[in-house]
Amino acid sequence: MYSIVYIMYSKLYKREYTLKLENNLRKFRFEKDEISQQALANAVGVTRLTIHSIETGKFNPSTLLALKIARFFEVNVEEIFYLAEENQS
C-alpha cells in the first residue's frame, strides 16, 4: 500500500514538475492577416526579439504581457497559452 502511494505521489510530483508553458502565438499571428512579429511587438509594447523568444518557447511572458497578447487577438489567454508536459511537442 505504501509503495502504491509512493509511486502515485512520484508520478504526480514528476508530472507537476515537468509541466511547461507553451503557446499558439505563431498560429494566431498567421490567422490574423499574417501580421509580423514586429507589428505584434509594437501592439503590445515589447521588442521583436521578445515575441520571437515567446514563440520559440525560450521565454515565458509575464501575466500582463500574456493578457495584452490575448486582448490583441481578442481571445481568452488560455487559447494562446497553455500548460503541456515537457516531452510533448
Binding site: Q38, A39, A41, N42, G45, V46, T47, R48
Partner: peptide, 11 residues
C-alpha cells in the same frame, strides 16, 4: 517600411 516602436537593434 515597418515601423518599430521599441528598439532592439541599437541595444
Amino acid at each position: 517600411a515597418e515601423k518599430i516602436n521599441r528598439d532592439v537593434n541599437i541595444f
